[in-house]
Nucleic acid binder design. Structure first.
Lengths: 343, 343
DNA sequence: TTGTAGGCGTTATCAC
DNA sequence: GTGATAACGCCTACAA
């Protein structure tokens, strides 16, 4: 063997066949003598030949990179999504390549463009919140990169969408508060311009409306999906002359902030204040009291997104109906931060 | 322009020069007529030519992938490291490719081997805890992939190491407890076989020894770096007939668990129990009370590791002494979970 | 069923 | 300084 790693030529030479035959073995071409295949496979195993993915990519005029583009502030969420994508990519030849971006940077679009143009990934998953913006999908279409958007509601065509149904599950969450006897229910909203925020708000409003409960003045506090904004919102809500007996926070971080604010006032949760969050990243279970929240199915969404992104590469696979799914329900997780209001 | 993306041939044809000249422009060869360069650059900009990285990789017989291999259970830690690596890779042609592994899976080594052999990344960063195992580094050497190990102490040769000095900063943390008047100090240890756990334990023991304070029987509780194990360890410690007045937990998750355990007993922190954690991932600041902890410089370590992994690619750069560094200190972050013991 | 010739987009060699 | 020509490792088309 020459220096460096063995190539297809080495295999061909040693096996006494042509490169093409080796190529056929690698690519599982059906029209091959079993004997030939066995012989070549023997040589491959013997000399430890591994096809060079760069050369493959060049010859095939496509590569095997799946990108994850995100600007999600929550680490656990991002990691769950990464893991979901890796599940979807498992046992394929695709690799995951991660690209965090800064929504607020003026160079963000240029950065992503460079990434897409230089790497030409086979496809990318756009995570919320940046998936909700039209700029990135437009960019993907412009440079001819397939994509899937992940969101809290349908954002695009079904083949380019994986979504949870946030408004629906929030109705359920708020109904749970109402069932416990709460009527003074406030919301810590997500930031303007976030679809997830809008959807969760929509669910909140629907639930109140369905129960004939009024949204009291001052009972909507603006939040930014951060812990700190949750504290501020909690302060604002609890400083009301007639504060709420229950708060729905549009994510767990803000719920944790509100919990913080309540504690600083000597209020106990859930006795003095019931609290529900959203996401069920690790944080929720680790708070005291453990937070009742909504489990967002990020991992499942990501797995499905990865499948969609590579779906067209299984040429002979009849379209798997499982790959058509794009809507996945979140789930209310009951823990200890909700109780009937004190009278 | 033909269909598809413009190639170096298109540029050469339009600019009326040879491919090689275009290549020289791309690679900033110094021996080029300014006029030629300007002309070619004009054409490149005009038709939007972007070099194909696969073809480059093939011709150069190397690629531009830097891997992150990890089995770290903490999302924020992993994300910090990712971000640090991306900082180190910024404005280079390298891409980050992430590879979580399962330490307990029997196929783990085979998985990683396949990854290394198929993708042939230019280098990989091994994160703790898996970096502490010798199996992975050995595998890297076997397949000829350069690597850097990240750890809580020196694990390898300096060019293959970035490390924090955990035992050192833990001495400082425990000294802080002692300075507050604590003498009944317990530790929630990390799992056996983790270097970080051993180092932190070492620091703990040194600090007590230096102050002439005895480690009381039962004051070492085993932990597994998880929230749940922190609860169990906290329970065990607080159930002692003479419980500790202060606990050092070897990471924040376990400190959160201990906090949980304390709360369930109606103990308040820091009045009844002082608590120090380790890591300073988001969790610490979001607990109530905000947790005094040690900030582990994962992002800095990762940035440096990335620089080391690509250091040899700057052929003409005289070895940057900044790239030689491999030890970075952690830092004690004072918050509200420590107070003098109640008498 | 297998082999030959040629191309994918880039860089290295070595003349001019 | 610049340009033919030949790699790099693999695949497709077309023959045989």
């Amino acid at each position: 063997m020459k220096s460096g790693k063995p190539t297809i030529n080495d295999v061909a030479r040693i096996a006494g066949v042509s490169k093409k035959t080796v190529s056929r073995v690698i690519n599982r071409s059906p029209l091959l003598h079993v004997a030939t295949r066995a012989k070549v496979e023997g040589v491959i195993a013997e000399i430890g030949f591994v096809p060079n993915p760069q050369a493959r990519a060049l010859a095939l005029r496509r590569n095997f990179l799946i990108g994850l583009i995100h600007d999600n502030p929550n680490a656990q969420t991002v990691l769950n999504v990464q893991q979901g994508m890796l599940q979807g990519l498992r046992d394929t030849e695709f690799e995951l390549i991660v690209r965090p971006v800064d929504r607020h940077s003026p160079e963000m679009l240029a950065d992503v463009r460079r990434f897409l143009e230089c790497q030409r990934p086979h496809g990318v998953l756009l995570m919320p919140p940046i998936a909700e913006n039209e700029a990135l999908p437009a960019l993907c279409r412009e440079v001819g990169c397939r994509y899937v958007r992940m969101g809290s509601a349908v954002l695009d065509t079904p083949d380019r969408t994986v979504a949870s149904n946030d408004s629906h599950v929030v109705v359920e969450a708020v109904a749970h508060l109402i069932a416990q006897g709460h009527a003074r229910i406030a919301i810590i909203a997500g930031p303007d311009g976030f679809l997830s925020a809008a959807e969760r708000r929509k669910g909140f409003d629907s639930a109140l409306a369905a129960a004939g409960i009024a949204l009291l003045p001052g009972f909507v506090a603006a939040g930014a999906y951060t812990f700190e904004s949750g504290i501020a919102a909690g302060d604002q809500l609890l400083d009301l002359p007639q504060p709420p007996t229950a708060i729905f926070a549009c994510n767990d971080e803000m719920a944790a902030g509100a919990l913080h604010a309540a504690r600083r006032r000597g209020l106990s949760v859930p006795e003095d204040l019931s609290l529900i969050g959203f996401d069920d990243t690790g944080l929720a279970a680790h708070l005291w009291p453990p937070l009742t929240t909504v489990r967002w199915p990020g991992m499942v969404l990501a797995r499905q997104a990865a499948r969609k992104l590579i779906a067209d590469t299984f040429v002979d696979a009849e379209a798997d109906p499982a790959d058509e799914r794009w809507l996945f329900e979140s789930q209310l997780v009951l823990r200890d931060s909700v109780a009937p209001p004190r009278r």
